[in-house]
Simulated assay, not measured.
Amino acid sequence: MEGIIAIWQRDIIKFFRDRARLFGSFSMPILFLIIFGGGMGGSMEALLAGPGGDPNFNYIEFIFPGIVSMTLLMTSIFSSLSVIQDKEFGYMREILVSPISRVNIAIGNVLGSSTVALMQGLLMFVLVPFIGVRVDFISILQLIPVMFLMACAFSSLGLLIASVLKSSQGFQLLVQVLVMPMIFLSGALFPINNMPDWMDFLVKINPVTYGVDLMKKIMVDVDQLSPMIVEAMGLNLEVFGRSVIMFEQILFLVVFMIVLVILATISFSRANA
């Protein structure tokens, strides 16, 4: 536990010391919030205000859970860049030859990155009073463990990538290629209904899809929306023709995280072999 806490604490200290990283990670989510919320919001709201729709539907409320999920994803994965930097400066080799087990190294890195991502995600709720999104305090309390679980799952993916690659440039290039499709194929910014079969398959195996839908279930009161809006906006995720419940989404994220942490542990072991 001392090894896990030490690695965990180190990532958090590095986060608070790097103010550019603190503010820079907001740029992309806020940009998407402005572009999609302001640009597409009017068109989507007008489209869904017709017969069977709801003239009071707020498109920003639909994408805000996705924007928070995007913040968690980007912060979690890019936090693993420190693993590559530790490799380059020799710090990781010192950790690997220490008595700390490889599993504890992986868990410490995941918890550190996840805590940083959670803090970044929670800071997004500062924007709530200014963008017209309604989120009560109880919902935020319910979101915290869900956001932390999502951050752990995404951090495990970043850790696996960092454990395999050897250069910061290669890590950033691969992550940029990987992150954007995961965001666009998750329902974070627009509905994912009626996609081609091959694209629908990618949607269903995308962990961000389940995290985004889980957050929407907590933040958006689906029962108060018309069936037409629920269908049009894809607020009822289905896999194999049946609706996915919250427990199944949580289970998917937990299994995803465990598998990737195991793979990252194996990769660390080989690196020190």
Rank of each mutant, 00 (worst) to 15 (best):
N104S: 14
I229Y: 09
I161E: 00
Q249Y: 03
F252H: 03
G52Q: 11
I63L: 11
N236H: 05
M246R: 08
T265F: 05
K166H: 12
T115V: 07
V116K: 06
Y91G: 13
I12R: 09
D86M: 09
F89C: 09
Q85L: 09
A162C: 14
S101L: 08
A188I: 03
G3R: 07
L260A: 05
V175H: 00
M199L: 13
F32K: 03
D213A: 10
A162H: 02
M74G: 01
M28H: 00
F130I: 12
V146I: 15
P181Y: 06
V126Q: 11
P65C: 10
G170E: 14
A273L: 15
S69I: 01
P29N: 03
F240N: 15
A271M: 08
G52F: 07
A6S: 15
V259K: 12
L251Q: 13
R19Y: 13
F184L: 15
I67G: 03
L122G: 04
N272K: 12
I7A: 13
I7F: 10
V128L: 08
V133G: 04
E45D: 08
V128A: 15
I60Q: 10
F26E: 05
V177A: 15
L202P: 03
L122M: 15
S113D: 10
L235Y: 06
M150C: 11
I5F: 12
E61C: 08
L159E: 00
P55T: 10
F148H: 07
I77R: 04
F256N: 10
V222C: 05
L214R: 00
L253T: 05
A264F: 07
Q176A: 09
V146F: 02
R102V: 05
G121A: 04
L48W: 01
S80F: 07
A117H: 02
P51K: 14
I34D: 06
Q172R: 11
I63F: 05
I95K: 09
V208T: 06
I105N: 03
P196K: 14
P65V: 12
G3V: 03
L81M: 13
F89T: 13
L31I: 13
L118Y: 01
I138R: 12
L225Y: 06
G121Y: 01
K216S: 14
F184W: 12
P207M: 07
F23G: 08
Q172G: 14
N194T: 05
K204Q: 15
N58R: 14
P55S: 10
G121I: 01
T209A: 08
I161T: 02
P55E: 10
L178I: 15
V261C: 13
M40G: 05
G42E: 09
G50H: 04
V220Y: 01
P129S: 07
I258E: 06
D197L: 15
G170Y: 14
A162N: 01
S267F: 04
F57A: 05
E238L: 07
S69D: 07
I258Y: 02
V68T: 04
A151F: 02
I30A: 02
G90A: 10
L173D: 07
N193Y: 01
G234R: 09
L165G: 03
L178C: 10
D221S: 14
F137A: 13
S27H: 02
V255P: 10
L118M: 15
N194K: 12
A106N: 09
V164N: 01
L202G: 01
I4F: 08
R102Y: 06
